[in-house]
Design a protein around this nucleic acid. Structure first.
Lengths: 366, 366
DNA sequence: CAGATGGCATAACACGTTTTAATAGAGATC
DNA sequence: GATCTCTATTAAAACGTGTTATGCCATCTG
């Protein structure tokens, strides 16, 4: 093809290939006049460096892998957007893998990442098995966990405190006077679902209530609107509707909402409802949805910043487990003011006030 | 690092590196017993092939680039999911680029793709300038346009007939009896916005009405819910509310809906409202949203199939411009039955009945 | 003015794989 | 038993870049 190599650039600039390489990678080592001559030749020939050759020789690529559980879920989309922006700014390409919650697809994605010799991986693992990740790290691929806590000091993670989120949600439902509360969880293999459940239990305990009699958990097979709607339909059919329902994410909650309204069950009149994630559509739903907000875009940004910092200098890098605090958003589905509140919402917001945007502030985080 | 090369596999299997390569790429050329011995060695050492070395030597990679305009828009997310599934099945990795509608970010993404020597690119270009794409194709990178018609016979494209969609939407509003119709469009640099507007005009003409007096278009700076809400607020402030509003996409429509309801304007009582795309949340919004459905996931699938077919054998490949037909979905915002209709909706549906799933059926398309 | 110093450019090799042409070995045919 | 054919395997070259040891030249020092 019309592919032009570093040699032809060198010839046009009357310089050796090594010098062209230096212009690309360490411009300060080459005299300004030569540098400009080379750059001119690059423009003239429309040269673009061969990433594979560069990777092969240098021993490391300028790509990172991003493995998400559900590309259709706005939570992950926001995270992906944050990560992509940061990576792109630093000249890194992002390889996307959608595991769709399946362990085998996740393994497949990681294999593809390994083949591409990605510099690092941003991943929300679908289970807690550490072998997959260790396999990557043995190959020199850095790993940062997204929305999963690292229970080890040798791994970075960026999470939101899901136990606190569960506490917030259930405490709010208790404030409304609810005394029979349902928890619609996703697959219990997902740690966040368990954490949010645990937080809910803590809120009950703090109120002097017995989790056994107050909280009834139902497990949905997936965290989608469809699964939520089906769960709602089953609940209604069983005749055991609680006074309030806490859903493990907004998609489930929107599904539940659809199912309830369709069956003529009033929200929040008959059943109060709260979700989790505060996706953009939570405020726009039939009855605007109360939720627990997480700084998703920021999550992706910080995760990518940590990863690239670790890739840049693994020696100097201190692994950090960053925990954001979630925030309660009260809307109509739990008797709140409804959509008026939504209009003042900023799409991207850090919930920890001490965090300012930008890479430099990373140093300030404990 | 602990990176193991093909040579070490060869040594362990008492075989030459070339044979290992053959086992990986053309297993039928090597004797069964040798093949198994090599495979055993690969497993034992945990070898994974070096994608960059492979790309460098073979002259082509196993990656494709995906450049979308807005990763936060469910329309593109669905397309991405379809493309990713197909690419993944065929062993291709997907490199993600989010142009966020900016020309310069788009150029940056394409540069990154070129550096990675992607085999092909799936792109929804933000403008009609053919130079960018031609630049890629000169480098031997195949291109398939997604949701943008190729006006040239040497380019594949996968689109939905936006003129027909606009006709459907406006004809439906006319059926309701509306005689003053607003069209909230995105930036007019986006061809679909223009097409949908043109379709609306056709519907008016077909009904014997004068587009000049009946249809009033307003241009929003972006196709987001925020822009939609602001447009609604301006409309209300101006006191020139039409009887019905057709929005260029669902995000705009959801924003408009929010703005209208907040100001006490009834939907569909005071103003009928219809969007475009039928994203998952259209059915779950405050007033369930009528919309024009596009087979988005399928769009991504077919686009990836076309691209990989073209990459596989550029000679035999016949460029095709595939056009799907959109479908009207009537819900509460135009007086329809509301969410009951939503429940029967299949998430992935081809709107052209002659299309069956799978790569093989591609041949059957004109 | 001779020698030392430091900045730049050069030439050659290495990276891990694929590929091509060449070789060895096993049957088959005469 | 010799030659031929066919298959399974090997050795070596090539892909485009990054790196390093080396050499050159100019400037500075004494």
């Amino acid at each position: 093809m019309g592919t032009v190599s570093i040699k032809e650039v060198a010839r046009l600039a009357r310089v050796s290939p090594g010098t062209v390489s230096n212009v690309l990678n360490r411009p300060e080592r080459v005299a300004p006049t030569t540098r400009e001559r080379v750059r001119q030749a690059i423009r003239e020939l429309g040269f673009v460096r061969h990433g594979s050759a560069s990777t092969l020789r240098a021993g490391h690529s300028r790509t990172i892998g991003l493995s998400v559980m559900d590309i259709g879920n706005p939570f992950f989309t926001d995270v992906a957007a944050g990560a992509e922006d940061v990576a792109s700014d630093l000249g890194y390409a992002v390889i996307l893998g959608n595991s769709a919650g399946s362990r085998s697809k996740e393994e497949h994605n990681l294999l593809v990442f390994a083949e591409q010799r990605v510099r690092g991986v941003l991943i929300t693992p679908s289970d807690e098995d550490p072998r997959l990740l260790d396999g990557l790290r043995e190959r020199g691929i850095s790993v940062v966990l997204v929305d999963r806590p690292a229970h080890r000091p040798d791994l970075c993670s960026v999470t939101v405190d899901d136990v606190a989120g569960g506490r917030l949600a259930v405490a709010h439902l208790l404030d409304l006077g609810a005394r029979r509360i349902g928890y619609l969880t996703g697959p219990r293999t997902i740690r966040q679902c368990l954490d949010r459940e645990r937080g809910g239990g803590q809120a009950l305990a703090a109120a002097g209530l017995d989790p056994e009699t107050v909280l009834e958990a139902v497990e949905a097979p997936a965290m989608t609107a469809r699964a939520g709607q089906e769960a709602a339909e089953r609940l209604i059919a069983s005749g055991r509707l609680p006074e309030a329902i806490f859903c493990a994410n907004d998609l489930l909650a929107l599904g539940v909402l659809r199912g309830l309204l369709q069956a003529g069950v009033g929200v929040p009149g008959d059943v109060a409802l709260i979700g989790y994630d505060d996706i953009d559509f939570a405020a726009a739903s039939a009855v605007s949805l109360s939720s627990v907000r997480q700084p998703t875009y920021r999550l992706g940004q910080i995760a990518a910043e940590l990863l690239l910092e670790e890739c840049g200098d693994p020696g100097a890098h201190a692994h950090r487990q960053i925990v954001f605090q979630p925030e309660l958003v009260v809307r109509e589905s739990t008797g709140g003011p409804g959509r008026a509140a939504a209009t003042t919402r900023r799409r991207v917001s850090a919930s920890s006030p001490e965090l300012k945007p930008g890479v430099s502030t990373l140093k300030e985080i404990r």
